[in-house]
Simulated assay, not measured.
Amino acid sequence: MSFEFAIWNGAKPVLHALRQAIGCILGPNQRDLKWIGLLLFMGLSIMPAAIAAPTSVTGDLSKQAAIEVQVSLGTATDELKFVPDNLEFVTGKRYKLVLNNPSSQKHYFTAKDFADGIWSQKVEAGKVEVKGAIHELELKPTATAEWVFVPIKPGSYPLRCTIPGHAEAGMTGVINISTGRK
């Protein structure tokens, strides 16, 4: 197998997910023109993420069954911590991160670098669904939100609550994204 074919084979799932996302935003008449323009604009900047995507992922990533992961922002006794505070994800798999806030005060789930390394399909909270780039979620007391995404870029990313004093009191964590290969 040639090197060029291996790169393209690894890039196909990422490019397909990106094209699907663009297709949802644009109408069918503009889809191909905008897709070509976006690829030209992005150039080679997507190749590291595409190479990191596992070649075993096939089909539409937005249709893949989501793996549910639950995280509490704070506790019912108002402890300032994420439970759990160490999250593990694998590139190319679809996740549904269920965030809940059992405490009596609001909290933030802030992980900008993590958010830059994933494809966010949507965030649902109550009767609202948000699509597009998401870097921070605020959960008011007793609120729940679901973040559906596919990790693309492996790495270790800091997680924190940005309310003054919360991170300093221990409301921090780490989000790890691996390729799943050993």
Rank of each mutant, 00 (worst) to 15 (best):
Q64N: 03
Q64L: 06
A66F: 08
I67F: 13
E68L: 04
V69H: 06
Q70H: 07
V71F: 08
S72G: 02
S72P: 03
G74H: 05
G74N: 05
T75F: 09
E79W: 00
E79K: 08
L80R: 11
K81G: 02
K81M: 05
D85C: 01
N86T: 15
N86G: 09
L87T: 11
L87P: 08
E88R: 13
E88W: 01
E88D: 10
F89G: 06
T91C: 14
T91K: 00
G92I: 05
K93S: 04
K93Y: 02
K93L: 04
K96H: 05
K96F: 05
V98C: 13
N101Y: 01
S103G: 04
K106S: 10
K106Y: 08
K106T: 00
H107I: 00
H107W: 04
F109M: 12
T110W: 15
D113T: 12
D113H: 10
D113Y: 08
F114C: 13
A115I: 02
I118L: 12
W119M: 15
W119A: 15
W119I: 15
W119V: 15
S120Q: 08
Q121S: 02
V123C: 13
E124F: 06
E124I: 14
G126H: 07
K127D: 11
K127S: 06
V128W: 06
K131S: 15
H135Y: 15
H135L: 13
E136I: 09
E136R: 15
P141T: 03
T142W: 00
A143E: 14
A143C: 09
T144A: 10
E146R: 11
E146K: 14
E146V: 07
W147A: 10
V150G: 12
V150S: 15
P151M: 07
I152H: 07
I152P: 04
I152M: 14
I152A: 10
K153D: 10
K153P: 04
K153T: 15
G155P: 03
S156H: 08
Y157W: 14
L159W: 07
R160I: 08
C161A: 10
C161T: 11
T162R: 14
I163P: 00
I163M: 04
P164T: 14
P164L: 10
P164Y: 11
G165P: 07
